[in-house]
Design a protein around this nucleic acid. Structure first.
Lengths: 126, 126
DNA sequence: CGGTATCCAAAAGGATACTG
DNA sequence: CAGTATCCTTTTGGATACCG
């Protein structure tokens, strides 16, 4: 086995725990999942559609990591067809609110960043 | 050429700009650079030592991306040996403060997350 | 010192097929 | 529907060598 297929984050290294938590929270899909769940609970496929362009695999991995960290609650109803709802825990809501604030900030400042990029690029491609 | 060596983020895709900015700010090394520079300006090697375990390549890439986004200011003094100081711009400081708050939150909640993980693991490894 | 360029290993991520 | 398992591609990241 190639050690890192299908298992999610590897996290086996010696890194301070809080850096690791920060990486889970700020990870590409973690950010989007947390922000989305801030609105309301979501089912798996619903979440997938809401976020867009995320593969099942990555969404599953992300949700499992966040659940393990105690940020997301997974509620699997024993029905056919299966139904699983994901929601934020109290801890998750705290994290999600901060992440959302950061996301709102980037939206608000997008124009400034884009202008800075243009200036940067023009300065070195004459 | 393998298209993506030595150049930094590829960012060529069609993604909403603010998601991209968020990824730069929350990237593995971006987070740490922003937090460190919040304290004071740093020189390249100084920053490398302060962060620890970051390669020259990744630090260079991260700094260039943040500079291009207008978050970090690069001040290269024309002396021998070269001396380059990095500091936050006004925009960068706004981002850095939010990122730092998130990092402080993870530190404060580390124990809770660790406990959640243990409960999670014990529940499925009997 | 503060980088670039190159090469290579490791990890992330996606497509597909399959299952309860 | 909500996953798992597998295979494969792309991206990330580090080591090394070199340059102004």
């Amino acid at each position: 086995m190639a050690v890192s297929d299908g298992a999610g984050w590897n996290d086996g290294e010696a890194m301070c725990p809080h850096r690791l938590i920060l990486e889970h929270v700020t990870s590409r899909w973690g950010v989007l999942v947390l922000i989305q769940l801030l609105e309301r609970p979501y089912r798996f496929s619903e979440l997938r559609r809401a976020i867009g362009r995320v593969s099942e695999k990555m969404l599953t991995q992300t949700l499992q990591t966040l659940e393990r960290d105690g940020l997301v609650h997974r509620d699997a109803k024993p029905v056919i067809p299966p139904r699983v709802d994901y929601s934020l825990t109290g801890l998750g809501r705290e994290a999600a609110e901060q992440v959302r604030d950061l996301a709102l900030w980037t939206e608000k400042r997008t124009a400034d960043v884009l202008a800075a990029r243009q200036a940067y690029d023009e300065a070195r491609a004459p």
